[in-house]
Write a protein that binds this DNA or RNA. Sequence first.
RNA 1: GCCCUCGUAGCUCAGCUGGAUAGAGCAGCCGCCUUCUAAGCGGCCGGUCGCAGGUUCGAGUCCUGCCGAGGGCGCCA
Length: 563
Amino acid sequence: MGVALPVRPGRAPAARLGVPVPSEGAPPVVRDALAESLRDALAALGVSPVPAQVHLERPARREHGDWSSNVALAASKAAGRKPRDLAQELADHLTAAPPPHVESVEVAGPGFVNFRLRPTWLHDVLRDVVEQGTDTFARPDLGHGRKVNVEFVSANPTGPVHAGHARGATYGDALARLLERCGHDVHREFYINDRGVQMDAFAQSLAARKTGGDPPENGYHGQYIIDWAAEMPDGTDHSAWGYQKALDDQREVLGRLGVEYDTWFSERSLVESGAIEETLADLRAHGVAYDADGATWLRSTDYGDDKDRVLVKSDGELTYLTPDIAYHREKFARGAEQLIDVWGADHHGYVARMRAALQALGHDPADFEVAITQMVRLERHGVEVKISKRTGDLIELRDLLDEVGPDAVRLTYLLQSIDTRQTVDLDLITSKSMDNPVFYVQYAHARIHSIEKVARERGVTRLPLVDVDLGLLVHERELDVLRTLSELPDVVELACNERAPHKITAWVRELAGAFHGFYHDCYVMGEGVSAELTQARLALVEASRVGLAIGLDLLGVSAPESM
RNA sequence: GCCCUCGUAGCUCAGCUGGAUAGAGCAGCCGCCUUCUAAGCGGCCGGUCGCAGGUUCGAGUCCUGCCGAGGGCGCCA
């Protein structure tokens, strides 16, 4: 069989070429202005040194204003004053010459400086969102074009992708989308473990089923082996056919999930290209490979690993580690500046040795990151369903997709942090009920489209923003939507830096909630709504659409126009 | 024994790298369809943030030690 190294065409490069101007997609300027005014005030009050970073946050409680700072608490020592006294001086100073949009400055609690702003600051947010649109709003350039290779799923080519793999698949892809939005040049990659005993067991299992027998004890016992064996033509190479079958199947199902790779990289190709020998030689050249007990070892303890690791067994066979080191070396050689691997928790013990190897080869350990996804526990009728390809207990990803489609699958898996063990309720995910958060979010988008449709039918056209009086937007529901939108740039940046796509999910749910509230209480068209207010609200609807579109796109969930 | 992750409402989970009275969805109970989709909106109920110390103006968040759950610790992959 040929080297399975089909390189796919790159992902829509045109869309990524528009390098964002730093100021665009940046966090709200209000915060910067407030921070600046606080620094000025501190300087004016003779506080020295003035802290370089003044922290501003959005208070959890409305009565604490729109923005809040703890500078007075943090700088009270340097200022030689009590926190509340310093806060009061700052507040007085700022009240005398209030920054833009500021209505009042108050001191509260132990010494917080709270800013209450006029709704105009949110109208500015609305303007930014609509003018910048889906492509530009909330697109912080964190990566500056840095080449990042994201490897995820990398299931053995011995069977279909199952419900457990879906976590790595949705996470890896959403992370890739986040990195792309934040200015990274992302390469999605799947490593095919097509070498070793698993492949032999797989081929033997197929062969056994083909002749109506049972697979070997250490073989694969799933129903799919029986099905595939029946499909397998007579006289074909079981190993080669099965390999291709598994690969095609995985690629098809992942594709249906919306996951497309730039590269499917074959482990076997490393043997054929000599990359493994080169890697071993390289490790020796760096003095971190040595021979003992008839085997070749990696001195990984020099780099913080618990113990040294075997590279070449005494029988001459390679361990799993060696080609994997060669593979990671290869990814750097192909131009990646940073590697991010998404691994299941059962591989976490492997991180130290891989990092040690790469460090020994001269790479900065910070350029090799591993995101560990905790296990997925599947439940049906409240009872745990075990997944094992070997025993044949399998919930195929394909079946989930058949039942609910990619959107519900993706959103369900992206609901939580990867650090927590996830319980996926198969009854719930496969039920098209309102329990499923995906419908709540998509429904908001459908409602937006519905409003736009009705507007069109009634001959109402949305005017350019310059002709719209956004000052009419003062309803608490309207402001809620805008407040939520104002957070998106920060949320995107944070989610990217923390490799936490679930923060996007949380935000999207919040925006959908705010929009549903607005929809319920604020009619865009109808009795008692002036033409001017209709225009202002249409602008708000458009801003909501942009926000939802950005969020859903980051999650890889579609934004339907009707439901 | 050592390492990683987790422990927050009946259930599933957030909690912005230390902030103010700890949030959301679901489940349960009670309301709201003559307007753009009720797959929606509002209200009520529900908490010793596993336990014990420590750090400081301030701890669900940071440190230490226990307890509990899951996953690792191979010349397996």
